[in-house]
Design a protein around this nucleic acid. Sequence first.
DNA 1: AGTGAAATGACCCGAGA
DNA 2: TCTCGGGTCATTTCACT
Lengths: 151, 151
Amino acid sequence: MLDRTDVQILSLLQNNAKLTIKELAEAMHLTTSPIFERIKKLEKEGVIDGYVALVNAEKAGKGQIVFCNISMPVYTTENIESFETLVRTMPQVMECYHLAGVVDYQLKVCVKDIKEYDAFLKELAKIQIIKIHSSTVVLHDVKYSTVIPLD
Amino acid sequence: MLDRTDVQILSLLQNNAKLTIKELAEAMHLTTSPIFERIKKLEKEGVIDGYVALVNAEKAGKGQIVFCNISMPVYTTENIESFETLVRTMPQVMECYHLAGVVDYQLKVCVKDIKEYDAFLKELAKIQIIKIHSSTVVLHDVKYSTVIPLD
DNA sequence: AGTGAAATGACCCGAGA
DNA sequence: TCTCGGGTCATTTCACT
């Protein structure tokens, strides 16, 4: 599905979306046209999901990450839907995964400080269908990358 | 530090880095020059960390996420440094956080399948300074966003 | 699938308010 | 800080290989 050239394009664009088609073409010893067409194809197929600017959370005053572990005592389709829909609308929740573990969900929450996290928890606690199991504060970020490893 | 216009620019670019300066200018009823200068300033100050293409992990054949919980029995500066340096070089590790909890580190690992995760664990186990505490498999992604919430 | 060239349009940098 | 306008260069399309 993805040949060597596609993977090469993706690897470069995952690190720097501002590379021009010309630069990509030079890097892989081709002309601009095939690069252009391949990128359009990858976008159309949804392999490339989009292009985003990454903001430094610290400098934007949102340097605190907290993981929130949640379980759902009554595990019905309805409850799942309403919880997942809510989570997707909360901007503080950057990531949410349904786990195969002792707790059902893990949320990665991005806030200014613990005080703001406290407010977030109070907001979340309004939903009666979930049980907030525990919260784990992040001391510091060791690594944050958006790059999907491609073989 | 960041005024209303800056926040507006960041909000738009965090969702779509391909917006042209012209489009941004129209969206906030300004001309291109001030937008251009503000963006350059935000980049220079490091508020904008970079621009990246987001790849769909599923379509790239890397649809499995596993969280790996690690503790460090002998917590010395040396051990911390060598572990954190290693983690930053491993492409499967997309995120790594130092936690204030019962385990020291949480790694978000991106792999093709559990078999590949097994290989990753074996690789990681070579470092004698850490103790792999547990692994939690993700059943499905509810939300993944790179957008830092700005007030 | 890739090349090369031509037109379209965005970026960037002035001068001026 | 913002507006306006022009030079420069990347993007995009197309006819050909």
